[in-house]
Design a protein around this nucleic acid. Structure first.
Lengths: 215, 215, 215, 215
DNA sequence: AATGAATGAGAATTCATTCAT
DNA sequence: GATGAATGAATTCTCATTCAT
């Protein structure tokens, strides 16, 4: 998996000066993505990573200060990828609900392609909680932006706020876990439409008895 | 936190034969819950656990074959607690939507009380994926049961299936992360009502333009 | 394998007083023979032995002071068995060379039946060197006795001494390793006759050139 | 004792890439030979070995995967030494019987010099049986070659085969145990001549009664 | 005598990080 | 910059032996 490079060091994010250095950095990040994805943070060792990258163990520390540092850099990279991919999925779609459906469909497709990403970002909860939180907060913020846009156009009902954004994100993530990571057979469109059905109509029966409880 | 014991060993679940043994096993599970919750699986060491439990390091291996084994036993215990607590929250509530609202409120309250549990179960994704999967699959199955009951009474619209259960579970879990683990100030009832609003009505504006996109 | 009991303790060899105790002791020795034979001294654990014997771990120390003590008792038992068996093989045979042949044949047959014994006695070289030495010195002494008897009758040439006894014992032991422990297909009689041929005639060609080197 | 290095790892025998690495490997093998020889496999610890070698504990694993792996490498080294030494003893000697006498004398002399070697190879029976077997099978094969050469020149009688080789090896080994390891006072030449006497003439009295038993 | 839990010293092994070349 | 050897703290796991019941 190719990973676009970003700040390599934890404390002193300095880009390599030479072309050769840039290539080595790239190899390291790709190898780390593969190892962390396959074996998890704790079972992946730095020597696994350098071996896979085809460089000497000692060279690792030319680029990163620690195992945590490369993990952090990786999460930030992957998070950016998710973001950009998500923007793409949604770019040419109009209509607030259609946008949400496209966002979910794009997310599911991306997750199926890059199953490791999901795992790596989730493991950040335990390895680097700040990255984890940052990822989900910014994702929720983007959803909330879309909800606000929909409220402005009148497509979405008034009063939607951060809670709704988190609820929607949770739906998406768990559907991703279930239908992209664990089972990638089910048709993405069907899943996305089902979820969108909840957003459009809820799950109550419109012709049934009044749902409100007296209590 | 007191934890009810279940099969302690991974392969050969043998219960202690004496009362003293049962007490020691209990101390171990409680200590493990505390350590794993506070420090995470990898940073918690077996000697931390036995020290906290007040027993000798070697005694650990009278009850469990490995750190993984006690973790697994613990997850299964905690999962059972979540299940039973969830059943309680819902027990005396009538009405399909009200039941979902109560379930979420109960879950949020429980998560606030026992923040470690959340962390431990989530870490199972990386430590013992089978336990993790088992937990969420059985949780989804319970939600689906409730949806089916609601469809039978006509309270919920026809056609709800496993996808909907996972979507609802995702909503709940992420709201739990956001409003029980990270921020425990917001009033639970408000969160639960908001989420329930999605289930009842969706997020679309009922008086707005037709939501269906031509595309 | 049934093992006749002898002094159980290292320091205070005291026989059990009750019949029940005698039976437990026997079970322990038999289990130890099996475990030490199969897994070797270091890989066999006391709990393996007591588990195989069907008694509680703690009861072991009613009969033996340590793992070394039971090993020592065992070697002395087995050594006695070899001795008695060897005496049997030779009992009704007359003629000095025939006696040696019978002794080897008996040893090979016994080794095939009780392969563990060989292993246990040999491991004594590393676990309890005194027992090992004692076993082979007393075996050599018995061979030397036989040689002396043969010299007295004039069947064997004069001048045979301890060296010869050790040489013969070495032949026997290694033929046992090769043709009883590692390969138990070859006919015992053939092996024994071959070895006896060396004792009778040597390996030189009686009609060949003079073997003595000028040097 | 200096030990010539051979394949260090059990599975992935990779030679050190630098001169410094080669020196460390040598130090490890020498230290292991000394420790295993003095204390035996089980009582020698890896930290004993590295301490004696003057390197850090962790460095051991740069060269060997386990205690068993270094033991195995060592046995194969020592076995090669025995072989080469044995070839030397015999190199300039002519006459089939004289060759056997020289081989035994050389073996006894070597065993007295390097008592640990004997112990280490013998312990392989319990630590790494394949190495043990390999050592004695190849030794027997070399003896058999010599016997065949002697049969071709007519110095040795026809019909000698593998059995005879094992018998001779057994004689040699046990004389080594008795007169090199346990007692190193007796003159080597006397022992070797005694054993050679058996090979030349057997032990029967050539002028005595017919040795063949009617039975 | 028997039981089985408890003990804790000891050992092997891992691996992030440092360092000399 | 790159290389690969060196380091040593940390951790898991074993098991002979002791002890309370």
């Amino acid at each position: 998996m190719a990973v676009s490079s970003s700040s390599p060091r934890d404390s002193t994010p300095r880009e390599p000066r030479t072309e050769r250095g840039r290539r080595t950095l790239r190899k390291l990040l790709d190898a780390a993505a593969a190892e962390f994805g396959e074996r998890g943070f704790h079972d992946a060792s730095i020597s696994d990573i350098t071996r896979r990258a085809g460089i000497a163990l000692g060279s690792f520390y030319t680029y990163f200060d620690s195992k945590n540092a490369i993990f952090k850099a990786l999460v930030s990279d992957l998070s950016a990828q998710v973001r950009s991919r998500s923007a793409n999925s949604v770019a040419r779609v109009t209509g607030a609900l259609a946008v949400e459906e496209a966002a979910l469909a794009g997310f599911l497709a991306f997750s199926r392609e890059q199953k490791e990403i999901y795992r790596i970002i989730d493991e950040a909860e335990f390895v680097d909680p700040a990255s984890y939180r940052e990822h989900y907060e910014s994702t929720a913020a983007r959803i909330l932006q879309r909800l606000r846009a929909g409220m402005e156009t009148g497509e979405l009902r008034a009063g939607l706020d951060e809670d709704h954004a988190w609820a929607i994100m949770g739906m998406n993530v768990f559907l991703g876990l279930r239908y992209a990571i664990w089972d990638d057979e089910a048709p993405i469109e069907k899943i996305a439409r089902t979820a969108n059905g909840i957003l459009r109509d809820g799950i109550a029966c419109s012709h049934g008895p009044d749902q409100r409880q007296p209590q």
